[in-house]
């Protein structure tokens, strides 16, 4: 399973705050649609690495990290306008230090209006949240495999059916305690599975990143 490592979280936090407060991002033209986020002087900025260690305020007067969720209603330069699931509204500021995940570690250029997200970051005086990580459309569901096709799985989640899209060079399976593998041949109909992936707002399907099945469930006979 995952192991997290990163650089000094305080350095990262300082960079994030400074970048947001100065309005100085490393996003190409300053617009999400054309920008590039993913490499900073701090090193890796993928989402796993970003959360490798506790992020503590530099100053006791600085608020602890905040969290926001919802669907993106508009993208204005480097700010995501987000409608929360309880009628609330958040403004998420994406900076050069923001890690972006959308089925993989990626850039803000992949974020679209209509996407769902979870974001974590620092609340700023202007009311925005300077995000240090944004997970776009991420879902983690307990499901049962009901059907297997070459390019997709049919999953039962509660009382709903979900189509899971198999993505070449991305989808992997975790069989019990073994490391994740690209070999999906041991997935079987009827297995319980924990499915981590990215929801597609356009059709409600899920791009599968990892399908974890219980130990023994994928054992070769």
């Amino acid at each position: 399973m995952s192991v997290y490592r990163t650089g000094d979280p305080l350095d990262r936090r300082h960079f994030l705050t400074a970048a947001a407060l100065r309005g100085a991002t490393v996003i190409g033209t300053g617009a999400l649609g054309t920008g590039v986020i993913g490499a900073t002087a701090l090193g890796a900025v993928d989402a796993d690495a970003a959360f490798a260690a506790p992020i503590r305020p530099l100053d006791p007067a600085v608020a602890e990290s905040a969290f926001a969720e919802g669907r993106i209603t508009a993208i204005n330069d480097d700010v995501l306008e987000v409608a929360g699931s309880y009628g609330d509204h958040s403004r998420i500021r994406v900076t050069g230090a923001t890690s972006v995940w959308k089925a993989r570690a990626t850039t803000a250029a992949d974020i679209e209006t209509g996407d769902g997200l979870y974001a974590r970051g620092l609340p700023l005086p202007d009311g925005t949240l300077a995000a240090d990580a944004v997970w776009v459309n991420i879902v983690n569901l307990h499901a049962t495999i009901r059907g297997i096709e070459k390019t997709r799985l049919h999953l039962a989640h509660g009382h709903h059916e979900i189509v899971g899209n198999l993505m070449a060079e991305t989808t992997n399976a975790a069989y019990g305690t073994a490391s994740p593998t690209a070999d999906l041949s041991r997935l079987a109909i009827g297995q319980s599975a924990q499915v981590l992936g990215a929801w597609r707002p356009s059709d409600g399907s899920v791009d599968l990143v990892r399908v974890a099945v219980p130990p023994g469930a994928g054992r070769r006979r």
Partner: peptide, 27 residues
């Protein structure tokens, strides 16, 4: 992680809680 292993699922966290201590993409 770092040679420490924990076995069996014993708690489920909301996205807000899980992301406070780790990455959602790790699962």
């Amino acid at each position: 992680c770092d040679g420490i292993c924990r076995t069996n699922r014993v708690i489920d966290l909301t996205p807000a809680a899980f992301s406070a201590i780790g990455s959602l993409s790790s699962g």
